[in-house]
Design a protein around this nucleic acid. Structure first.
Lengths: 157, 157
DNA sequence: GTTGAAAGAAAGAACGA
DNA sequence: TCGTTCTTTCTTTCAAC
């Protein structure tokens, strides 16, 4: 992970569809060098994939919400089963397994508030392992799609 | 947004770097047709961009957390200023503006727990508009990178 | 809106430094 | 590890359907 790798990662996060030639031109290296670097990054698992970002409204997903969930018992099997089945629901964008007060946080989308409500009642309330959940509608989201490598220094204190 | 558009969106969410030819082949249409559809989707803002997905550990971001934040006063200027400045911090992946008990939810990353702690103390605790925040470390995340269009039907009830 | 053909551009592999 | 060259493949335009 030298400077060149970091730059490649930055450029591909910004625009994953630019050509290898264009990438090489911006980096000031030969296309073959660039291609080999990208392959090595992919082989090492640093680059996990390339995804188009789609406007949620166009996917009939005009409403977003965060749902914090508590389940019981807190056994491995209950957590795994809940995580796997909930992440397969089409409304669910992300499932976060948390430490602390809540066990899960679900980032969900729906066509509108009626559909969100129906999702909560039909898909969550029915589950026996859920002992409580709390829903917060999302007014707005700011998403950083380009992440830099954090400096590799020790924390203070 | 017909069936062909939906399929293009699905395929580009799965792999944004596949060639237009390959896309066309999978859809059973001519490459020129596919190219024109992709352009139209981009022009209409349905396709917002193409991003490489990078392994967070490679970016020195081995620890993730969710931070729920309450700010006061709840004025437009306080909310906007907070949202804008926090979203510019390198540790912050997403800022969610919420309805309900908490005002914001921050998805943050850090090199380790020490750095996360330092971030909370140095970047959040210092802010005068924050009247409280609660941090939950993320054990695990399941992320759906391919989203289908939700069915366009009325909710029950 | 969709297609196929043609020109130009890029990818991918081999090889050498 | 990097750059050059060459062959194959792809992108993109455009006239026609």
């Amino acid at each position: 992970m030298d400077e060149l790798d970091s730059e490649i990662i930055r450029l591909l996060q910004t625009d994953a569809r630019q050509s290898n030639r264009e990438l090489a031109r911006q980096l000031g290296v030969a296309p073959s060098t660039c291609l080999e670097r990208v392959r090595a990054l992919t082989r090492r698992g640093v680059i996990r994939g390339y995804h188009a970002e789609i406007e949620l409204g166009a996917l009939n997903r005009g409403v977003q919400a965060m749902v914090s969930v508590q389940v019981r018992p807190l056994s491995r099997s209950v957590i795994t089963t809940f995580k796997d089945s909930v992440s397969r629901l089409p409304e669910v964008l992300s499932v976060f397994v948390l430490a602390g007060g809540d066990d899960f946080l679900l980032h969900v989308t729906a066509q509108d508030l009626d559909h969100l409500h129906a999702f909560l009642l039909d898909r969550l309330s029915q589950r026996k392992e859920i002992v409580g959940f709390r829903t917060s509608v999302i007014f707005q989201r700011v998403h950083n799609t380009v992440l830099s490598r954090l400096p590799d220094v020790a924390a203070e204190g």
